[in-house]
């Protein structure tokens, strides 16, 4: 490695570390608060002081008192099918809008994009009524179907733009080989869209996991509700206990973080594929 290269890499790490530290400052506060006892939090106003002893007591208390295990399971039951459903149907729709020429193509795309722009709080009443009418109120399916539908607006827009960059020659070549259109979608389009699907999957997972409103509007039974609703009741219960609220918040945030870590590799994969050719 040349001297210049070492210097360059060194300064990259230095800058990256400084940026990350500044960037994570608010989380640092939440993190240390979760380890501090309340008397430390109240009496010691200096945030840069580390907790006296690192104890996971408050994490445990948040987990047990907040009844988080049940809420966690619910969040998974809601989030996983919602994300898969939204991605799958949006990829189909996005493919149709990106690679086929037909009348009203742009209009349909426009409607999908436009639907995503409504301030969704406004949809509380109608969506509640529709779920009720179909008999889905107070079931997981009500929340899942709504998430899939609403998120499709953004996902179709997103995937359509990425699928457009796939060379049409590739598809035509498969057609010559006699592949059906759906086969082309499964065997050519989906694999080539992987980095985009990974990014979208990460974002969608995070949003749906963090949704609060619809879990509350469409579910009545406490044993069906997602972790965000649990967190808000935790906030209600431990108003003055910042450490427990912090701990609960960090536990809830851990899952989307893990998903990001898992899917991140697809970001690099694209580059590596290019490099190895």
């Amino acid at each position: 490695m040349s001297k210049k290269r070492i210097l360059w890499v060194g300064s990259f790490y230095l800058i990256a570390i400084v940026i990350s530290l500044i960037w994570l400052f608010p989380l640092f506060i939440a993190g240390t608060t979760a380890f501090k006892s309340m008397s430390e939090v109240v009496q010691d106003v200096y945030w840069w002081n580390l907790p006296d002893n690192f104890t996971f007591k408050y994490f445990l208390e948040a987990w047990n008192q907040g009844g988080m295990s049940r809420y966690f399971l619910n969040s998974f039951i809601i989030t996983v099918p919602s994300v898969i459903g939204a991605l799958f149907f949006s990829a189909l729709g996005g493919f149709a809008l990106a690679k086929y020429r037909f009348k009203y193509n742009k209009l349909i795309l426009g409607i999908f994009i436009a639907g995503n722009m409504i301030p969704f709080q406004m949809m509380m009443f109608p969506v509640f009524r529709i779920s009720n009418l179909i008999g889905l109120y107070d079931t997981y399916l009500a929340v899942i179907l709504f998430h899939i539908s609403f998120q499709m607006g953004f996902c179709i827009f997103f995937l359509r733009n990425f699928i457009r960059t796939i060379p049409t020659d590739l598809l035509d070549a498969a057609r010559v080989d006699g592949s059906s259109e759906f086969r082309i979608f499964l065997q050519i389009v989906l694999p080539l869209t992987k980095p985009a699907l990974a990014a979208l999957g990460i974002l969608e997972f995070t949003w749906i996991w963090n949704d609060y409103l619809w879990g509350l509007v469409l579910l009545a039974s406490d044993n069906l509700r997602p972790v965000t609703v649990g967190l808000v009741s935790l906030q209600g219960e431990y108003l003055s206990k910042w450490n427990i609220i912090s701990a609960g918040s960090l536990i809830a945030a851990a899952v989307p973080l893990i998903v990001f870590l898992l899917f991140q590799r697809y970001f690099i994969q694209g580059l590596m594929m290019g490099a190895s050719k």
């Binding site: 940026i19 609060y212 965000t228 967190l231 906030q235 851990a254 989307p256 973080l257 990001f260 991140q264």
Partner: peptide, 15 residues
């Protein structure tokens, strides 16, 4: 580093 930058997005708005 990427994960660090991404972290704020994992928090729900309430948190």
């Amino acid at each position: 580093f990427k994960t660090a930058i991404y972290l704020p997005l994992t928090l729900s708005f309430v948190v």
